[in-house]
Deep mutational scan, measured.
Amino acid sequence: MSGNGNAAATAEENSPKMRVIRVGTRKSQLARIQTDSVVATLKASYPGLQFEIIAMSTTGDKILDTALSKIGEKSLFTKELEHALEKNEVDLVVHSLKDLPTVLPPGFTIGAICKRENPHDAVVFHPKFVGKTLETLPEKSVVGTSSLRRAAQLQRKFPHLEFRSIRGNLNTRLRKLDEQQEFSAIILATAGLQRMGWHNRVGQILHPEECMYAVGQGALGVEVRAKDQDILDLVGVLHDPETLLRCIAERAFLRHLEGGCSVPVAVHTAMKDGQLYLTGGVWSLDGSDSIQETMQATIHVPAQHEDGPEDDPQLVGITARNIPRGPQLAAQNLGISLANLLLSKGAKNILDVARQLNDAH
């Protein structure tokens, strides 16, 4: 009898209710805020589980004197976190989706994509230029951005401005803007500013005609071990179906173009009346040469937790077992079709030249 009692006690200790789920994140304040929001949602869904947040620095956090596009290494903000995932030191990792490459290392998958916040870019102005827009900034004003995508589009749109690289986390960039006289304004992701509670610093939100956004911008991705079915089931509740389908289309477009950090590629997606609209573009580094096109596809946005595919093969690095396969494939095909259209119009040449120029500098 006593033996059975011990077995029952052991089973209770090993039951999922007692389990601590370890969540990996970057150390920056924004990353911690984003991770806290994901953990809060998981806690609400699984009140019996405990969650421990483990923060670590990544290569991208450490190399702050070089433009991201020049470092010449993929997975700048993800490699150390993936290493911890691989060694079973954490069970899942919360990322900004735009930091996750469209091809993940073997053994990993994006197990959830959370509801997207505003994906557009924002302009934050130096205190002396508050009330201005990019259009009304004085001639030769210097605007800071760490992104080739932003610089290429904005140089084309605002030729009277000069664009220079600015690195560091959000706090560091804002301090550089406010305390030094080098920059009249800087460009940042609206979602990051909003998550930090800095709505009052948003001086201008850039519309798609001015600057399309990065693939996955404004959404959070939760990376897990691809074979860890328990954790895949656990994080599945975080999937937002519309965000998922938009981001599958965007990531398929980028992957098929073979774009990345070192080339200016941008997108804009919208879901309306059962249609998914995808606009994508590529630019030369100075913005003088560009190709942009829009395509659409009829896609039914499923309700969360309709029964999805059981075999769960990944699409552009994403596993969404609780979302039907048909809409996911339709979104992926839309991204591939748009990429093929741009490639047929000469996108590869623009991107190759951009890559060579970026590598040469």
Score class of each variant (00 low, 15 high):
Asn169Ala: 06
Ile21His: 07
Ala55Tyr: 11
Val142Cys: 13
Arg321Met: 07
Val353Thr: 15
His300Asp: 15
Asp233Thr: 08
Ala226Val: 12
Leu161Lys: 08
Ala112Phe: 00
Asp273Asn: 15
Leu193Ile: 05
Ile63Trp: 08
Lys27Cys: 12
Leu343Asp: 14
Phe125His: 04
Leu285Asp: 14
Thr59Ala: 10
Gly197Phe: 07
Glu223Gly: 07
Ala55Leu: 10
His300Cys: 13
Leu188Cys: 11
Phe129Pro: 00
Gln155Thr: 11
Ser288Met: 15
Ser147Ala: 00
Ile21Leu: 15
Gln194His: 07
Gly72Trp: 06
Leu220Gly: 03
Asp178Pro: 02
Thr279Gly: 09
Leu238Thr: 03
His120Leu: 13
Met295Ile: 11
Ile350Asp: 04
Ser337Leu: 15
Leu334Gln: 01
Val130Ser: 04
Asp307Leu: 00
Gly218Thr: 01
Glu210Asp: 09
Gly60Phe: 00
Cys261Ile: 00
Pro302Asp: 12
His300Asn: 12
Leu30Trp: 00
Ser147Val: 03
Leu188His: 12
Arg19Ser: 08
Ser37Ile: 13
Gln217Trp: 02
Leu278Gly: 09
Val282Phe: 09
Gln29His: 10
Lys157Leu: 12
Arg201Trp: 09
His256Asn: 06
Ser57Ile: 01
Val90Asn: 04
Ala303Thr: 12
Phe163His: 10
Asn349Ile: 06
Phe129Arg: 05
Leu76Asn: 12
Gln314Asn: 14
Val90Ala: 06
Glu310Ile: 03
Val124Ile: 11
Ile110Gln: 00
Glu250Tyr: 01
Trp198Tyr: 11
Phe125Val: 10
Ala347Tyr: 15
Ile186Cys: 09
Pro106Met: 05
Gly168Ile: 01
Ala354Tyr: 00
Ile187Leu: 09
Glu139His: 14
His120Asn: 12
Cys247Asn: 06
Leu220Asp: 04
Gln204Ala: 05
Ile336Phe: 10
Ala31Thr: 00
Val235Ala: 02
Glu80Lys: 09
Leu170Tyr: 15
Pro324Gln: 10
Pro119Glu: 06
Phe77Pro: 02
Val23Asp: 00
Leu341Asp: 15
Ile110His: 04
Ile54Ala: 07
Gln296Asn: 12
Asp61His: 06
Ser96Phe: 01
Glu86Arg: 12
Arg325Gly: 14
Pro138Ala: 13
Lys98Met: 02
Leu232Gln: 02
Gln180Ala: 14
Leu104Arg: 07
Ser28Phe: 00
Leu245Phe: 05
Lys87Glu: 10
Pro119Leu: 03
Glu89Tyr: 13
Thr78Lys: 13
Leu206Ile: 03
Ser337Val: 15
Leu148Pro: 15
Glu310Asp: 06
Ser146Trp: 10
Leu92Asn: 12
Gln304His: 11
Ala339Val: 10
Gln292Arg: 09
Asp178Met: 11
Val93Ile: 14
Asp312His: 12
Gln204Ile: 01
Ser141Ala: 13
Phe77Cys: 04
Ile299Asn: 13
Arg167Gln: 09
Asp352Lys: 09
Arg321Cys: 07
Val94Leu: 08
Gln296Asp: 04
Gln29Pro: 10
Cys211Tyr: 09
Val93Cys: 08
Ser262Thr: 06
Leu315Cys: 15
Thr25Pro: 00
Leu338Lys: 06
Asn333Lys: 14
Glu82Asn: 09
Val124Trp: 05
His256Val: 10
Ala191Arg: 01
Met295Gln: 05
Phe163Asn: 14
Glu310Ala: 14
Ser146His: 05
Thr294Ile: 13
Gly335Ile: 02
Leu174Thr: 08
Phe253Gly: 04
